[in-house]
Write a protein that binds this DNA or RNA. Structure first.
Lengths: 250, 250
DNA sequence: AGACAATTAAATGTCTGACAAATGAAAATC
DNA sequence: GATTTTCATTTGTCAGACATTTAATTGTCT
């Protein structure tokens, strides 16, 4: 494993890339211990701070974990679903927030992907998933709920639906689509009337899931998508009228 | 922006988290320059190497970019779709590779999500997307093609299909599902007979896309999913028989 | 012999100080 | 006015040192 000292890129970036490639290619396996920082420094012919910067880069991607003390060191990390979820959500949220993605585009993607889970979830959902959906729909109907709490409950509801498909890979992929919508959803102020309609649709989804009717779930999701878009449009229109310039939703 | 020196976590991790939160919350906006490393070190009351480790963590997630020289420094990075793609693919690939995800589970998720694009892609695909699909199907029919090249072309075909939906958010989400399958697909040796069937299905998808028939696209994707699973099953069965122990596919 | 406490070696975490290299602005020169 | 030179600023890298953590080892007592 060598690096090119004449490469204009940072040495620490090159070292991180070399180790990352080794992990992806399977040359370094899970829980395997990397050489100590001092040894790595010697092998790559760089100083220890440079090696440390490289290791921190890998740690930021959850590719390695470090342990202090004797027999400690850097170990190849088994990327857990939870770590992957969190990374995916962070990346998705920033991607939507920084690139002027329109509400409609994000919304379309999110519901299209969620409909992909509908049939599987209706077929396989456990009593537990159904109970969670019911509980969240109930919570959403309570009057005192803040907008943030309403949105959080919305996410929990849809997450239960997605998890009902019993496919962790799908849950992982959907996490980014569903959770990254939350900042956009939080921009909407929900009236009691809005909430009632959403709760109605959520209850419909729960009913369909209880009846194991995937088509019905998908159909109501389409309704929910349309309603969400309408809602957002009216909110943004009102906001644009209030302040002549500078709409934040493109 | 403060950190807790008594926290058992690394100082560099805390500093990175503090800056990351500021970016996500919008307190630091795109292209804004962070204070210099020396200033950050003073503000957080740590040494410069510690600050540097924190910045490298953020750079690894493409949250910042650094520039050397006068008026250089660390700048909040606009997370591009391309950067997000690549991160997502890396994470997805490792997640599948390290967690003993079964071929069937990954396959199911991938095709379910891809079917979610079918209707939109059939409706909106440009002539360009269609041409790419045709070209890749044609390439896949050529005899001399290696298994790796065949798989790469397969990815290109499906990518064109997904991109046809004209929703960059969806393309981003699907990138992880489609591309992360490649290492698993590469484990399969494709016979001429296998390839012919896949090319037939791909051509069918292109035909349906040309006719703007989303249902047909979705239907053929389901066929392709079933065929892929059958294929994988027979390959793994043969492998298990060849060597009594240690199947790599769970 | 077994349980508990002290020692110790190995490793990461952090700091200090320094120099190299890049870079754009400002000053000097033509 | 255009070009070159100078220069201050900032990141990239290095060397060496010390602090802290941790688990294996050793020592001690019952």
């Amino acid at each position: 494993m060598k690096i090119d000292p004449n490469n204009p890129a940072d040495l620490s970036a090159q070292i991180a890339a070399a180790i990352r490639d080794a992990i992806i290619a399977g040359r370094l396996i899970v829980d395997e211990r990397l050489p100590s920082e001092a040894e790595l420094a010697e092998n790559f012919e760089v100083s220890r701070p440079t090696v440390r910067e490289a290791l921190k880069r890998l740690a930021a991607q959850s590719l390695i974990r470090t342990q202090r003390g004797a027999f400690g060191g850097a170990f190849v990390n088994r990327l857990s679903f939870e770590d992957a979820y969190n990374q995916h959500i962070t990346t998705s949220t920033l991607l939507l927030g920084m690139n002027g993605v329109s509400f409609d585009t994000a919304c379309e993607a999110r519901f299209a992907l969620e409909r992909a889970c509908a049939a599987l979830s209706a077929e396989r959902r456990s009593a537990d998933h159904l109970a969670t959906m019911r509980a969240e729909a109930l919570r959403q109907a309570q009057p005192g709920l803040s907008d943030e709490a309403f949105c959080a409950s919305d996410v929990a509801f849809h997450r239960a639906l997605v998890d009902g498909a019993g496919n962790p890979v799908m849950s992982y992929q959907l996490a980014g689509a569903v959770e990254a919508m939350q900042p956009l959803m939080n921009m909407i102020t929900f009236t009691a009337r809005n909430r009632a309609e959403i709760v109605r649709l959520h209850s419909g989804i729960a009913d369909a899931a209880e009846a194991r009717d995937g088509d019905a779930v998908a159909h109501i999701l389409t309704e929910l998508e349309a309603y969400t878009k309408t809602l957002a449009q009216s909110v943004f229109a009102a906001r644009a009228q209030a302040s002549g310039t500078g709409s934040t939703a493109r």
